[in-house]
Design a protein around this nucleic acid. Structure first.
Lengths: 206, 206
DNA sequence: TAAAATCATGAATAGAAATTCATTATTCAA
DNA sequence: TTGAATAATGAATTTCTATTCATGATTTTA
């Protein structure tokens, strides 16, 4: 795995035009990765899931790593743009936080493959972790903005250890998603957004 | 990987007496797993790190999976017994929570290999996730007790969505550890315990 | 001390799966 | 319509590494 994986052979057009087959393979890969994990998933499984021959994957992707990489990039981009839109729609810091968390939970609830894959596989890409648009990183930036605004508005404490507050919000949401996945995604995730934000805001002290 | 991995060949004595070599291999495996990840780590790397021949690993462990499994079991047990002791030393719920978080951060700060491995590899053991003594599960039980006690004492809100509160505390701590690992473990982790608990208790609202 | 039992070795084996590429099918342009 | 260009195929190749096991070293026992 190296950074060159980012650049595929001769399929730039396909990517731009979002070729049917390209997206099909990406989605199929998502299913298979989510079910078996990146390392146990095989090219043959992905190909078969996509209804194409093994060799066909190599017309669209440089190698197996590249498939995961592009999957993560694609999902990061689309989720994050929706998150940013959600935040922008909020009137004040608290409202923005609520919309962000709700969007986050909703996006992952609606794409369980993605939830499973983000929960684990991202970690293995230590080498290129800084190269891909890491959703965590963008997320923390969004949270920074919200917290700063909240402090200006006077609705969030001035003495906040912001770096820590960001981590604990993100961690809380991720852990809630994680346990939803682990529990077989049987309950409604999005409806946990408001209770969760209430906890973030007011803490557990009686 | 299957549940039989739990039972090794003929080395029950070795385990009981904590044979030098057994522990040596386990530690070496920890280093290698932490550096390369379970799947990319090879038996040869572990053997070489431990200063033994490849075949020797199979005298002490059933297979590669078994090495990780025993590593996780060993670490879970030892960390958790210290966590429980920390909690028991607390006088009231809030004190217990502080001690737990401090212990958690301190344990992981003092064993970075473990921190890295728990951060990622545990996820791949979906099949046996319920079999191993998952530190998260035990942790959540500890938190349950603390929250219940806090509610009885009146220092924690009666209307807490406890299942959520537990998740968000664990998530917060894990995410703080995660970013400490990611940042190259350059700062003091344990000293974040009190600020973090303050956040849990009082939230971010101004 | 010497035979037996145990432990360790690492080259050889075996199996799995990623990747390639000669061949075939399809699409496109004139 | 037909030849060229492009896309797809999947069997064969290559690579990689977990695991085995015949051999040798060491320790134990009597």
């Amino acid at each position: 795995m190296n950074i060159n994986s980012l650049f595929k052979k001769g399929n730039f057009d396909l990517q731009k035009t979002k070729s049917e087959k390209y997206n099909n393979i990406l989605n199929s890969a998502g299913h298979v990765f989510a079910e078996y994990g990146f390392h146990k998933a095989t090219i043959s499984q992905i190909a078969s899931q996509a209804g194409v021959a093994d060799g066909t994957l190599y017309l669209y992707f440089k190698n197996k790593d590249d498939i995961l990489l592009q999957y993560l990039n694609f999902k990061s981009d689309s989720v994050f743009s929706r998150m940013r839109a959600a935040v922008e729609a909020g009137k004040n810091a608290e409202d923005k936080l609520r919309r962000l968390i709700r969007c986050h939970l909703s996006e992952f609830q609606n794409d369980k493959d993605m939830a499973v894959i983000f929960r684990s596989e991202v970690r293995h890409f230590r080498d290129i972790e800084t190269q891909i648009k890491d959703i965590s990183k963008m997320y923390l930036e969004l949270l920074s903005e919200i917290i700063e605004q909240g402090q200006i508005e006077g609705t969030m404490r001035q003495d906040l250890f912001a770096a820590l507050a960001k981590r604990y919000i993100l961690g809380g949401v991720e852990n809630v998603i994680s346990s939803w996945v682990f529990a077989g995604s049987r309950y409604d995730l999005e409806s946990l957004a408001d209770p969760l934000v209430d906890l973030f805001l007011t803490g557990i002290r009686g």
